[in-house]
Design a protein around this nucleic acid. Structure first.
Lengths: 110, 110
DNA sequence: GCAAGATATGTCATATTTGACATAACGGCG
DNA sequence: CGCCGTTATGTCAAATATGACATATCTTGC
């Protein structure tokens, strides 16, 4: 997207390029990215809500604090598998996950 | 679960141990397994509905027919990432995925 | 300001996942 | 039956994700 158009849209109150910053991503790729972002956010939210530190969660998962940090930062090096296993080990329900997916859907670039 | 109880339940019309055959899996692990199974089923269903062969889908994904076969068989060697990217590349919507998650939830062992 | 606990960032050897390939087993149809 | 398109299974080198570790950067209370 050109800067001028973005600026104009933002002036008009739009949120543009909500994270995906799409550089030639197909719609499916965008949704995939948004999904990972949403799940990452969900991990952080649920973890904090449970009063757990990254270290605590790492121990539960047999992982390490640094990996949890990367996960919550939606680092490219973390898989959906780890995100999902994290969510479940924190106690996320199927419904929690559904909510995150809907958030991802809503968050994909217009 | 003891065999006697299982038999009794099955006589009564219940489906017992729907796939997870839990050998000491925690509830979270069960749900994770069911999730992969449900997504695998979703891939097959949507692919067939679109009239695509495994080879066709493989080409779209830059993967191979054998990997698609393994994915649909929910082979242990396939990741959630690949399952999800497959679903999206077939054209699954967020809602389709939500449905699969709910199926996984319903399918987890009692 | 400075500890102390928590989180972030970077690197790396190891483990897992991957596509590719070969080949087998299906299925339908002539 | 034999053929052909499709799917299943096994193997493997290359690609990617992983936990561990070191260390830097936040936070928060004192």
């Amino acid at each position: 997207m050109k800067t001028t158009k973005r600026t104009r849209l933002e002036r008009a109150g739009w949120q543009v390029g909500t994270a995906a910053e799409f550089l030639g991503l197909t719609p499916e790729e965008q949704l995939f990215v948004e999904l990972k972002l949403a799940l990452a956010g969900g991990v952080r939210q649920l973890r904090e809500r449970r009063g757990l530190t990254q270290g605590d969660l790492a121990k539960r998962l047999g992982s390490s604090q640094s990996r949890i940090a990367k996960m919550e930062a939606a680092d490219a090096s973390v898989s959906l598998d780890l995100l999902m296993r994290s969510l479940l080990s924190i106690g996320a329900t199927a419904n929690d996950i559904v909510k995150l997916i809907k958030k991802a859907e809503a968050g994909r670039a217009a």
